[in-house]
C-alpha cells in the first residue's frame, strides 16, 4: 500500500516536471503579453519572466486589436481550417479505406506515388503550385474567372488531400479486424456502407489525431497565404503576425496577439481530447 502511494507521488512528480518543461515558453508568452515592452525585455533574463509582476495591464491587447483586424483574421483562419479539416478527413479516410480493403488495378502505383509526395517539402514547390492555381478556373457567386488568387478556395482546396493523412488512416485501418468487413459484405452491405457504418465508427482516435494534425497545419499556414492573399478580407492569423514587425518591434503586442490566436487551437484540441477519451472507452468495451 505504502509503496503504491509512493509510486503514485513519484508519477505525479515526474509528470509535473515534464509539464514545466513544456509549458514555460507559453507562460512566458502569456505573462509577457501583460507587460510594457521595456519591462518585458528586462524581465526576460530572469525568473520574473514568468511572473505577472510590475506594470501589469491589458494595454497590449487593445493596442494589438487596433493594429490588426484580429476578429476578421481569426474568422478567416477558422473558416479555412474547418472546411479543410472536414473535407480532408472525409476524402482521405475514404481513399485509405480503398487502399487497405479493396483491390483495384493500379493501386500499388497510385499508393506509391501518393506516399512519395510525403517527401516533398511544401516550401520547395510553392512557386510551381502558385503557377498551377493561377491557371485554374473558378465559378463563384460573381461569375466565371481564371486564377484563384485572393480567395478562400485557394487556401483550402490545394490542402484538402495530403499523403500524411492518408498514410495515417492506412496504418490505422491495417490494425482493424478484416472479419468485420467480410461479415458486412456477406450481409449485403455496399463498400461505401462498410466504410461509413463499420470502419468510420471504429476509427475514432485516428480521426481525432488526423483532425488535430490537419488543424495545426492549416491554422498555422503562413507562406502560402502570404503569396495568395492580397486583401484583409482573406488574410489568416499568421500573416497578421507580420503587422507587428515594424522598426520598433512591439513585443508586448506580439505576445498579446499570439495569446489571442492560440485560444482557438487550444479549444479545438480540448474538444478533440473528449473524442479521444470516448474512443478509449469504446475500444475498452469492444476489446
Amino acid at each position: 500500500m505504502n509503496t503504491d502511494k509512493r509510486s503514485t507521488v513519484m508519477r505525479y512528480l515526474l509528470l509535473t516536471w515534464v509539464a514545466l518543461l513544456f509549458v514555460f515558453p507559453v507562460v512566458f508568452m502569456v505573462v509577457s503579453s501583460l507587460k510594457p515592452d521595456m519591462q518585458l525585455l528586462q524581465d526576460s533574463a530572469s525568473f520574473r519572466a514568468f511572473l505577472p509582476v510590475g506594470d501589469i495591464s491589458l494595454d497590449n491587447y487593445s493596442n494589438a486589436w487596433d493594429r490588426v483586424p484580429i476578429g476578421r483574421f481569426v474568422i478567416n483562419s477558422v473558416v479555412v481550417t474547418a472546411i479543410t479539416v472536414i473535407l480532408s478527413l472525409f476524402l482521405c479516410s475514404m481513399a485509405a479505406f480503398s487502399f487497405v480493403f479493396l483491390e483495384f488495378r493500379g493501386k500499388a502505383v497510385l499508393l506509391s506515388v501518393i506516399l512519395a509526395t510525403l517527401i516533398v517539402p511544401f516550401e520547395t514547390i510553392a512557386i510551381p503550385l502558385l503557377m498551377v492555381v493561377n491557371n485554374l478556373p473558378w465559378i463563384g457567386f460573381d461569375g466565371f474567372q481564371m486564377g484563384w488568387l485572393d480567395s478562400y478556395q485557394v487556401q483550402i482546396i490545394p490542402w484538402v488531400a495530403d499523403g500524411l493523412t492518408i498514410f495515417l488512416f492506412i496504418q490505422y485501418f491495417k490494425d482493424l479486424p478484416r472479419e468485420l468487413v467480410e461479415a458486412a459484405r456477406v450481409d449485403g452491405a455496399s463498400w461505401f456502407q462498410v466504410f461509413y457504418k463499420i470502419i468510420v465508427p471504429l476509427a475514432g482516435p485516428c480521426f481525432a489525431t488526423a483532425a488535430i494534425l490537419k488543424f495545426l497545419v492549416m491554422y498555422n499556414q503562413y507562406l502560402w497565404p502570404l503569396m495568395t492573399t492580397q486583401s484583409e478580407d482573406y488574410r489568416p492569423v499568421m500573416v497578421g503576425l507580420q503587422y507587428f514587425f515594424q522598426l520598433d518591434i512591439a513585443w508586448g503586442e506580439i505576445m498579446a496577439y499570439l495569446s489571442i490566436i492560440t485560444v482557438p487551437v487550444l479549444a479545438f484540441y480540448l474538444s478533440m481530447q473528449r473524442a479521444f477519451i470516448a474512443s478509449i472507452a469504446s475500444t475498452g468495451v469492444k476489446g
Binding site: L130, N134, G147, F245, Q246
Partner: peptide, 19 residues
C-alpha cells in the same frame, strides 16, 4: 496594405500571377 516584412514576396507572387 501589406506587412513590410513580406511585401516583396507578395509583389513577386502577384506579378507571377499577373495580378
Amino acid at each position: 496594405e501589406f506587412p513590410q516584412e513580406s511585401y516583396n514576396e507578395s509583389v513577386v507572387a502577384a506579378a507571377l500571377s499577373g495580378k
